[in-house]
């Protein structure tokens, strides 16, 4: 396990390094001068130069990059020059909202995905399988924001059953918080869940043709036992990989879902920082997304190794 993690270090470092270059390059590739933007429309050249000096923009790029990275490692995420607040506090304020959304959505992906996948993968009735498969195809084809809009129309506008705009922290009031959370989380989770279900189902159908499933049948094992002990047990790995791959999509989808449901999360922060060209915030957010994606990938591999005795971590 430890050996495996050590082995992973070079590729993790490489991915993070490459992403940090991208993040670092963003404000410098964008047209316009950050200092000019900050100084305001009618400012003197001296004022601009002062800001430039303060931000260290006139030093060599390598030095700037180095300072930025060292700062990140020391926990100094930088400061939003526009809002005059530290990036850490900006993110801290909104982290909870996004975490709640992502956590519930992931839970729903696992629940809905496996249930639907197992249902399609284990039914022996052709029409039931075809029907469920078709439903699944539609869930995959409908993007989360359309589901979100439909949910808003049905639950929030046409009927006023659930709140569809704003949020209440789950920690502060679980009942109300959940009411605010369930619709966006469901909308976010549905297409990913359908993808997980599709992969799980395909894997189960493939595993069904394996000789060892026939061997179990020839032992006299019941259909239920064969599905659970042999088919499903050998297919969960695929589901785990699928869930891991969907995390990135969930994070990206959260940007839109937060906008639609008017939730004040990290996604909204990212959008507004693009609109206001507040790059310090954006840079950190981008790195964070990549970091989470990398961690999820490693976690996936660890879980996979736990499920399959043939996989030995670190070998």
């Amino acid at each position: 396990m430890v050996r495996f993690l050590i082995r992973k270090i070079p590729s993790v470092v490489f991915v993070l390094f490459a992403s940090s270059i991208v993040a670092f390059a963003l404000p410098r590739l964008a047209p316009g001068d950050v200092a000019v933007t900050l100084a305001g429309t009618d400012s003197t050249a001296a004022a601009i130069a002062a800001i430039r000096q303060e931000l260290g923009l006139n030093r060599p790029l390598v030095v700037q990059y180095w300072d930025w990275i060292v700062g990140l490692f020391q926990g100094n995420l930088g400061e939003s020059y526009l809002l005059r607040r530290s990036v850490a506090s900006l993110i801290g304020d909104r982290l909870g909202s996004t975490l709640e959304l992502a956590a519930l959505a992931t839970l729903l992906v696992i629940l809905i995905g496996t249930t639907l996948g197992v249902a399609v993968g284990s039914t022996r009735r052709r029409w039931a399988r075809a029907g469920l498969d078709l439903v699944n195809s539609f869930f995959i084809a409908i993007p989360s924001f359309l589901t979100g809009l439909a949910l808003i129309l049905v639950f929030g506008v046409l009927n006023r059953w659930l709140p569809v705009s704003g949020e209440v922290s789950f920690m502060a009031d679980p009942t109300i918080g959940f009411q605010f959370l369930i619709l966006p989380a469901f909308a976010l989770a549905l297409p990913s869940a359908a993808v997980v279900a599709r992969l799980l189902q395909a894997e189960m159908l493939a595993v069904k043709n394996e000789d060892y499933v026939d061997l179990a049948l020839s032992k006299g094992a019941s259909a239920t036992r064969i599905t659970l002990r042999h088919v499903l047990r050998n297919s969960v790995g695929t589901a785990v990989v699928a869930v891991g791959l969907q995390i990135g999509n969930l994070l990206a989808g959260a940007v839109i879902i937060e906008a639609i449901f008017n939730r004040n999360g990290l996604g909204q922060l990212a959008v507004s920082s693009v609109q206001t060209r507040d790059f310090t915030v954006l840079q950190v957010l981008i790195l964070a997304v990549v970091f989470v994606a990398v961690i999820c990938q490693i976690l996936t591999e660890v879980v996979l190794a736990g499920l399959d005795p043939r996989i030995k971590l670190g070998e």
Partner: peptide
């Protein structure tokens, strides 16, 4: 392949946000 793997780390929308930040 290594470089393309880095691009995979950026889900489509996040990449979009980066590009919009640069290009308007």
């Amino acid at each position: 392949q290594r470089l393309l793997d880095v691009v995979i780390g950026f889900p489509g929308l996040i990449l979009g946000i980066c590009l919009v930040a640069i290009l308007q």
